[in-house]
Structure formats: C-alpha cells, structure tokens
C-alpha cells in the first residue's frame, strides 16, 4: 500500500480549474518528483495535499486514511510535511524559534531537542545563527532553515516545493545535496523543482503535469530519456 494516494483530484480557484483528474502515488521510502511548466498546478497539488486549498473532487489518502476532511494542522501531526514555495520562514522570530515551532505537534515536541541537534548537524550554518532573526538570513540560509524546520516535525512524507528557487547556482548544488541527504535518512520525499536534470537523478519516479492534468509518468530514468521531457524541461 502506498503512503500517499491521490485519486482523481480536482482543484479550482473560482471558475479557474487548476487541477483535473490528477492521480499520483508515493510509496514509503520513495523519492517522487512532479515536473511541469510554470502555472501547471504543481504548487496547487502540494497545497491540496497539505489542506491549504480544498479539493473539488477526488480523494487523498495518507497511510490508508482519507485526508480531505482533516484540517491542515492535523495532517502535520499525522506525518505530512510541506516546505512551501517561497520558504515562508517567520521573519521576526529567531532561527531557533522557527525550528522549535517546526516541532509544534505533541509527538515532535517531545523529541524536539534531539531533532534540533540532528538538524543543526545537517545544516551547520544554522547553529551559528540560532539567535538571529530569520528574516535577516540570506536566501540560501532561509532555504536551509525552511528545510530544517520541515524536518523538525518528523515527517513521514516531506513535500518540497521548489527548494532551489531564486538561489545562486552554487547554493542550488548545496540544496540539492541536502535534499539527497534527507532522502538518504529514509524520509519519503515528494519534490517539485525547476532544476529538472538534477531532480530526476535524485528521484525514483516522476509525474509530468501540464495545464492541471498529468500527461506522463514513469521511472525517473525513463522520464529523463523521453523526448517530451528532454524537449520541454531539459532544453535538449
């Protein structure tokens, strides 16, 4: 049984249909990516899974349980984490407060000290800045904080929405390595990334979304070799 099962999902903003008949699955331990051009609906998909936007139709199951009636904050408690597009750190709270808030749910809170140590070890630039306001960090540091904060909730599935967006090439490398490290820790990852080439190397499987519909899916290596993906997303 898959950890996450999205079936025939439809989402609309008013009259504008953003997703239609989208079905994806993520098995425990897998790394899965969703590719798509701007405005394809990738963020909408992750937000619907997190409960930040509501679904018109379809179903979302996590660990076999239907999620649509479950409010966002409770989905986090069940082990569903999202590092949102644009990072959304709390700018006027310290780095450490941001991280501790990441472990707000009772289960994560009871293990927050140990998780914090792990996150600091993984992102060595964060402990140096633990008392600094998150809003005064550089873009790359904020992304690391957002990733670390996402890990603090001890997610069973971590969704990442464009973690390298707006970063300098050297930082993109660093972030991608960190995503790989998160995957290697055994966290199941669902990632949306502009950086298609590297993401396909990192992922086991992928889906391609176009104008709110799935057009292609398969093993990451197959996608990387397909004409459609090479033309549209790899610029080859």
């Amino acid at each position: 049984m898959s950890l996450l099962e999205v079936t025939d999902l439809a989402v609309a903003y008013g009259d504008m249909i953003a997703l239609e008949d989208v079905s994806i699955e993520v098995a425990a331990g897998e790394t899965v990516t969703v590719l798509g051009a701007n405005a394809a609906g990738k963020t909408t998909l992750l937000r619907a899974i997190s409960g930040l936007v509501s679904a018109r139709r379809g179903s979302i199951r996590f660990d076999g349980e239907p999620l649509l009636a479950v409010p966002s904050h409770e989905r986090v408690a069940r082990g569903l984490g999202l590092v949102p597009e644009g990072r959304l750190v709390f700018p006027f709270l310290s780095v450490e407060d941001n991280l501790r808030l990441g472990a707000f749910t009772p289960k994560a809170r009871s293990r927050a000290d140990a998780t914090l140590e792990r996150v600091y070890a993984m992102f060595p630039r964060l402990p140096e800045r633990r008392r600094q306001m998150a809003g005064s960090l550089s873009g790359g540091e904020q992304q690391m904080l957002a990733l670390g904060r996402g890990l603090m909730s001890l997610p069973r599935l971590l969704m990442l929405d464009e973690p390298s967006l707006g970063l300098a090439p050297i930082l993109v490398q660093e972030v991608m390595q960190q995503v790989a490290a998160i995957r290697d820790e055994g966290v199941t990852v669902l990632i949306v990334e502009q950086n298609v080439h590297q993401t396909l190397k990192l992922a086991d499987r992928g889906y391609v979304l176009e104008n709110g519909r799935l057009t292609l899916q398969g093993a990451a290596s197959e996608l990387a070799a397909s004409d459609e993906v090479r033309r549209a997303y790899l610029g080859l």
């Binding site: 997190s50 409770e74 986090v76 984490g81 749910t105």
Partner: peptide
C-alpha cells in the same frame, strides 16, 4: 507573521 506557514507547523 504568516498564518499558512503556521498551519504547516501543525499549529
């Protein structure tokens, strides 16, 4: 500071 991000913390 950001109500959506807060919800994503499980708040």
């Amino acid at each position: 500071q950001n109500r959506e991000a807060a919800a994503l913390m499980g708040i």
